[in-house]
Lab assay of single mutants.
Amino acid sequence: GAPPLPPYSAGGREVTMKKGDILTLLNSTNKDWWKVEVNDRQGFVPAAYVKKLDSGTGKELVLALYDYQEK
């Protein structure tokens, strides 16, 4: 199953993602919540729920390892 959710501390809205989604990583300075862009929406997802990909394009991409439903 998915890892436990860290307390929400990102101070911005969250976004929903599905397992297998490829998201653009915008900011990973917060260790628990990373800012991503998905379907032209920006928001935060739990860092433990995604994995960085080596895209080779200069853009940082992450793979959704679990479904996440915004609150």
Rank of each mutant, 00 (worst) to 15 (best):
P6C: 04
Y68C: 01
A64M: 03
A10N: 09
K18H: 12
A48E: 10
V50A: 03
Y66F: 15
D40F: 10
K52V: 13
L61D: 04
K31R: 14
Y66P: 00
K51M: 15
L53W: 08
A48N: 15
E37G: 07
K35M: 15
L53P: 01
Y66R: 05
S9I: 11
G20S: 02
K31Q: 14
L61S: 09
K19L: 04
G11M: 13
Q69T: 15
W33E: 01
M17G: 00
G43K: 02
L23N: 01
T29K: 11
A64S: 05
G58Y: 07
L25M: 04
L61T: 10
K18G: 05
P4I: 09
V50C: 08
K51S: 11
G12V: 07
V45I: 10
L26A: 03
P4A: 11
E14M: 13
D40W: 07
Y8C: 10
G58H: 05
V38H: 13
D67H: 04
K19S: 07
K59Q: 12
D67W: 02
P4E: 11
P46A: 02
L63I: 14
A64C: 07
K52H: 09
K59S: 14
L53C: 06
L65N: 03
T29N: 14
L53S: 03
K19C: 05
G20F: 03
P6N: 03
A48R: 12
L5P: 08
D67P: 06
A64D: 00
T16Y: 11
A2S: 12
S55T: 14
K52S: 07
A10I: 13
T16F: 09
T24I: 13
P4H: 08
L65I: 09
Y68L: 03
Q42F: 08
S55E: 11
L65V: 06
V38K: 14
A64P: 00
N30C: 07
E14A: 12
P7K: 03
I22H: 04
K31G: 09
W33Y: 04
Q69D: 12
T24R: 12
E70K: 09
G1R: 05
Y49E: 01
E60N: 12
V50D: 01
P4T: 12
G43L: 05
P46S: 01
T16M: 07
L61R: 08
K71Y: 15
L26S: 02
G58W: 08
M17I: 14
A48Q: 13
E60S: 11
T16E: 08
K52I: 11
L61M: 12
R13E: 12
Y66M: 05
A2W: 07
G58E: 13
Y68N: 01
S9Q: 12
A2E: 08
S9C: 08
G12Y: 10
P4V: 10
W33I: 01
K59R: 14
K59Y: 10
K51Q: 14
Q42H: 09
L5I: 13
S55Q: 09
L25K: 01
A10D: 06
N27P: 02
K71N: 14
R13Q: 15
L65K: 04
L5S: 07
D32T: 06
Y8R: 03
E60Q: 14
E14C: 08
V15N: 04
D21H: 04
A48W: 03
N30L: 07
D21K: 03
E14Y: 11
L23Q: 01
T29L: 10
V15I: 15
W34G: 00
V15G: 03
T29V: 09
K19E: 06
Q69I: 12
A64I: 02
K18Y: 12
N39C: 09
S55M: 15
L25N: 01
L63C: 07
M17W: 03
A64N: 00
K52D: 04
L61P: 02
G11I: 12
V36G: 00
V50H: 00
K71L: 11
Y49L: 06
Y66W: 14
P7T: 08
P6W: 02
I22N: 02
T24C: 06
Y49W: 08
Q69K: 09
D54P: 14
Y8N: 10
Y49I: 03
A2Y: 11
L26C: 05
G43Y: 09
S28P: 06
P6L: 03
K35D: 04
L63H: 03
E60A: 11
L26Y: 03
S9H: 12
Q69S: 14
E37K: 11
K19D: 02
P3V: 07
D32A: 07
K35C: 10
K18I: 09
V62E: 00
T57V: 14
P3F: 06
K35F: 15
S9G: 15
L25T: 01
G43W: 08
E70Y: 07
E14D: 13
R41F: 10
T57M: 15
W34D: 00
K19R: 12
Y68H: 05
G20N: 06
A47C: 04
Y8S: 15
E60K: 10
N27T: 07
E70H: 13
N30P: 04
W34A: 02
V38A: 14
V45T: 02
P46R: 01
D54E: 13
L63F: 07
Q69V: 13
D32C: 07
Q42K: 12
P3A: 06
T29D: 15
K71R: 14
E60T: 15
G12I: 08
D21A: 06
A48S: 12
K51R: 14
E37F: 05
W33V: 01
G56E: 13
L5C: 06
L65W: 03
E60C: 08
Y49R: 03
V45A: 03
F44H: 04
A47K: 04
D21R: 02
Q69Y: 15
R13P: 13
G43E: 03
V15L: 15
S28D: 15
L63D: 01
P3I: 06
S55Y: 11
G12W: 09
D54C: 07
L53A: 04
S55G: 13
E14H: 14
L53I: 13
T16D: 10
P3E: 05
G20Q: 03
K59L: 14
G11H: 11
Y49C: 03
L63R: 09
G58F: 09
P7L: 08
